[in-house]
């Protein structure tokens, strides 16, 4: 099926009676995936504050707003494209489009307008390097991940996870007009965090994904292979997340938090690997899923605190090891 006919098919699939679809403001807000937006704002802010030269607070706030709206726009476009499979999964069946409250065409127009607007606004407010990277992030999430990888390969969230990892780089680029190794390390942390986070959820929701025909790893390779992959990614992630200490932008508090919470991530990943049957297996997977959110939040919160507050020890470890 060509892309154009596929798009027409999508629009036809959910429009039963045009008058019946009148989403309110909350439905359109939901299309923006507000929880994902809040994480994007948070990580982009850390990237922005990493910049050696400060940014005008007003322009910094406006840039963060543009990045958040761009992320929300890509969420709306994702919901437009995935409405058919969202309708088949319990976790997503009540979203505005499968729920029949917003027409697919409305979501598409909403997403496109916000995408274009956010990129142009970021270009004018900050610079065109950041705007270009934001545009690429939206393209990557909507076209590369949603339209291509998600329904094609079990590695969908590994490669697609890059879209969620770009915000710190966009934030840094907004402040400086360039990239740095520090912002790339932050990208790497989120990139490595994404597979164990989503695969833990996919282990529990694998029937949903199978029903929708989404080739998530537990569906394609089975739970055992998924548990092993979760453990391997976590074993790489935990030491990688300590890197900021050795590069001078994470202090002693970050070192302590990243080591302790990284160890807890590994402990939970081992539990997921070892407990394979019954309710306890699902419990272990959901525990890892939940803790992974707290883990990423804590890493970035401590980095933010060390950048903003006069906490001692910033750069202490990198000095000790002579980097």
């Amino acid at each position: 099926m060509s892309l154009v006919s596929d798009i027409q098919h999508r629009d036809a699939g959910f429009v039963s009676s045009p008058g019946a679809m009148m989403g309110d403001a909350h439905d359109f807000w939901t299309l923006l995936k507000p929880r994902v937006m809040s994480l994007v704002i948070f990580t982009a802010l850390v990237g922005m504050l990493l910049a050696p030269e400060g940014m005008n607070p007003v322009l910094g706030f406006a840039s963060l707003l543009a990045i958040a709206v761009g992320a929300g726009a890509s969420g709306a476009l994702n919901m437009w494209w995935d409405a058919d499979i969202d309708a088949l999964m319990s976790r997503t069946a009540k979203r505005p489009i499968p729920g029949g409250r917003v027409a697919p065409g409305e979501a598409l127009a909403f997403g496109i307008v916000l995408s274009v607007g956010s990129v142009l606004f970021l270009g004018i407010v900050a610079n065109w390097v950041a705007a270009g990277l934001l545009a690429f992030t939206i393209f990557f999430y909507v076209v590369v991940y949603s339209m291509w990888l998600k329904r094609w390969t079990a590695q969908n969230i590994v490669i697609g996870g890059a879209a969620g990892a770009f915000p710190p780089m966009v934030g840094y680029a907004a402040a400086t007009g360039s990239f740095s190794i520090e912002s790339i390390v932050l990208f790497g942390i989120i990139f490595l965090w994404t597979p164990p986070h989503f695969w833990a959820l996919a282990l529990v929701k694998s029937e949903d994904y199978a029903r929708a025909g989404v080739p998530m790893l537990p569906v394609v390779a089975g739970p055992s292979a998924t548990r092993l992959q979760i453990l391997l990614y976590t074993l790489v992630l935990a030491p990688f997340a300590v890197l900021p200490c050795f590069m001078g932008f994470g202090g002693l508090l970050y070192a302590a938090v990243s080591v302790v919470t990284g160890s807890m991530m590994i402990r939970d990943a081992i539990r997921v690997y070892r407990i394979r049957e019954g309710a306890e297996a699902n419990k272990a997977a959901m525990r890892l899923f939940g803790f992974s959110i707290l883990y990423l939040f804590l890493l970035f919160a401590v980095l933010l605190a060390e950048l903003v507050l006069p906490l001692p020890g910033l750069g202490a470890i990198s000095s000790m090891v002579g980097i």
């Binding site: 009148m22 989403g23 309110d24 403001a25 909350h26 359109f28």
Partner: peptide, 10 residues
């Protein structure tokens, strides 16, 4: 429907 239109307009 009126409530939804009002919500969107606001």
């Amino acid at each position: 429907m009126r409530r939804r239109v009002r919500s969107r307009s606001t």
